[in-house]
Every structure is written in structure tokens, then in C-alpha cells.
């Protein structure tokens, strides 16, 4: 109430300096939005424009010769369809398992009476400060026979110390009396966890799920490292990465081939494929994150304060 009143009063007494400042600020924010969004919008326009026409340049925010050709081509590639399936699978499985395991450990180390509360917390937090490094980790995966399997995407990143701390802080904030009452009624820790703590922790579960899902969906390096020779375990990001690594050279080849009339079918070019895959690889996240803004802002603040 107070703030609202103040806001109204402020608006009444706008000085000239205020007007200049606000105008400049709004203009700056609009320019910033353009910088943030342009690269992405440009790729949308390119992906919806006929590839043979895009070569001429001059595509900015709107397609000149509208077509779904690029999407049809991309979705007709077996490797990309496989990549989408594996990407979705790892995102769903990795997020569900990760959030459940993180919550379980977080619940245990949030209990005052737990005898290993301190030591387990330290064991996990220590992992924020060092890691074995690329090669030793690679050899461990080899020795555990995880290379060439789907589980190499899930198991190594099951619990992150950062997410664990966010969740622990949240669970510690739940009033103790709720647990006590359930325990007096004879509920064990598993029942308290599943029937009381999980439903009460939805905001933090949403935050951590978003972090995990984004991490899984965006990951490409573990595919490159462990499963690059296994076509059935490729992911969308990895396919895009391969296109990206080849585009610089293949664009030139393609153009010279076009010029010499070698390619009669010029319905797609590496550039248009790259643009289309970029959109396909990022659209799912872009459709989801704005709705979770309230949660992840809170989660970030909570995690940083602790």
C-alpha cells in the first residue's frame, strides 16, 4: 500500500531530469532487447526463408520467400530425429531422477538430529572446489563400462552441490512443527518426505527441475566425449555442434558447387540447416522458462545467500 502511494506521489513530481533519465533508460532497454533478441529472430527468419534465396543475403527479421522446406528437410534426417528422441529421453529421465535424489539427500541433511548431517554436507560441498579432471573422469566411465550407454548422460551429474544447497535451505525453512506432528502420528522419514516435504517444496522443486532440464537439454560435451561414435545415442545439441563445426568450410564448397551448377537441388544449404536446427534446439526451453521466472529468481537468490 505504502509503496503504491509513494509511486503515485513520485509520478506527480517528475522533474525535468527525471524525464530525461527515464527516456534514455527506456531507449537503452529497447536497444538492449534488440541486441538480446536479434540473433535469435534472425535465425527464425533464415529458417523460414528459401535457402536458395538466403544466399543472396539481406534477410533480417522477416523471411523474403517463405517456406517450410528447411524444417521438412531437418525433420526428415534420421540422425536428427534420433537426436531429438535421445535429448527428450535424457531430459525427462535426468531431471526426474536428479530432482528426486537431490531432494532426498537435502531432506536428510536438513534434519537437525541426523548423526551424519555435517559430514555428508561437507562431502558434497567439497565437490564444488575440485574435480578429478577430464581424463581421469573419462577413464572412470570406461572402467564402469558406462561408455556407449545412455546412463553416461544420467549418472555422472545426478546430484550437484549447488542444487543440494538450494533445496536444503528451502526444506530447513519449513516449520518443524509440521514434521513433529506427522512423527507423533507415527509417520516414518520416508512418509514424511514423500507426503509432506515434497508437496510443500514445489517452488524449489520447480527451480531445480528447470536447472536440471536446461542442463540436460543443452549438454553436448558428454556425447562428444563418450558416445561420438554411437549414432543411436546422439543428441540434438551434438548434431547441431557437428553442423556448426562443418559450416564454415562446407558453405564455401556449397556455394562454388552451386555456381558451377553441380547441385541441381539447392533447396537447402548448410546455412539454412544450421539456422533451422538452432531454432529446433532452443525453442523448447524458450517456451518454458518465462513461466518459471518467479521460481528460478527466488532459487538463485536463496542459493547465493547461503
Amino acid at each position: 500500500m505504502n509503496i503504491l502511494q509513494r509511486k503515485k506521489r513520485n509520478r506527480k513530481f517528475k522533474t525535468r531530469e527525471d524525464v530525461i533519465f527515464d527516456t534514455c533508460n527506456v531507449i537503452f532497454m529497447l536497444v538492449l532487447s534488440v541486441i538480446m533478441l536479434y540473433p535469435f529472430l534472425n535465425q527464425i527468419a533464415l529458417s523460414l526463408n528459401a535457402a536458395s534465396d538466403s544466399v543472396r543475403g539481406g534477410i533480417y527479421l522477416w523471411p523474403r520467400q517463405f517456406t517450410w522446406n528447411n524444417y521438412e528437410y531437418v525433420f526428415s534426417q534420421a540422425s536428427i530425429i534420433q537426436g531429438i528422441i535421445v535429448s527428450v529421453a535424457r531430459t525427462v529421465v535426468g531431471t526426474a531422477l536428479g530432482v528426486l535424489c537431490t531432494a532426498m539427500v537435502a531432506y536428510a541433511i536438513a534434519q537437525e538430529k541426523f548423526i551424519f548431517k555435517k559430514s555428508i554436507t561437507i562431502i558434497f560441498i567439497m565437490t564444488m572446489y575440485f574435480n578429478g579432471g577430464l581424463i581421469p573422469t573419462y577413464l572412470l566411465m570406461r572402467d564402469l563400462q558406462l561408455i556407449g550407454t545412455f546412463w553416461v548422460y544420467i549418472l555422472p551429474g545426478l546430484i550437484s552441490a549447488f542444487n543440494l544447497i538450494i533445496m536444503r535451505s528451502f526444506i530447513e525453512g519449513i516449520p518443524k512443527s509440521i514434521f513433529e506432528q506427522a512423527r507423533i502420528d507415527g509417520a516414518g522419514d520416508f512418509r514424511v518426505f514423500f507426503q509432506i516435504v515434497l508437496p510443500l517444496s514445489l517452488p524449489v522443486l520447480a527451480t531445480v527441475s528447470l536447472f536440471l532440464a536446461v542442463g540436460q537439454w543443452n549438454q553436448w560435451f558428454d556425447v562428444f566425449l563418450y558416445n561420438s561414435s554411437n549414432a543411436s545415442l546422439t543428441t540434438l545439441q551434438y548434431e547441431l555442434m557437428k553442423v556448426l563445426q562443418n559450416t564454415a568450410t562446407s558453405n564455401a564448397d556449397w556455394n562454388s558447387a552451386l555456381a558451377s551448377g553441380e547441385h541441381t537441388d539447392n533447396s537447402v544449404t548448410p546455412k539454412s540447416i544450421q539456422a533451422t536446427m538452432t531454432i529446433v534446439a532452443s525453442l523448447p526451453i524458450i517456451c518454458v522458462y518465462p513461466f518459471l521466472q518467479k521460481y528460478f529468481v527466488k532459487g538463485m537468490t536463496l542459493g547465493a545467500v547461503k
Partner: peptide, 28 residues
Amino acid sequence: QRALLLMTIPFVIWVLVFRYLPVWGWTM
């Protein structure tokens, strides 16, 4: 507290294997 132990021990083993064990590889 066996319920709490059941909830954490598997993941303590997990963190020791996946996060601590690779440090042994430094020997190489």
C-alpha cells in the same frame, strides 16, 4: 535413523565414486 541412512548412503557412495575416485587418476 535407518530411514535417513537409507536415503543418503547410496548417494554418498555415488559421490565418492563419481567425484572423489577420479582424483586417484592424478597419479597418471
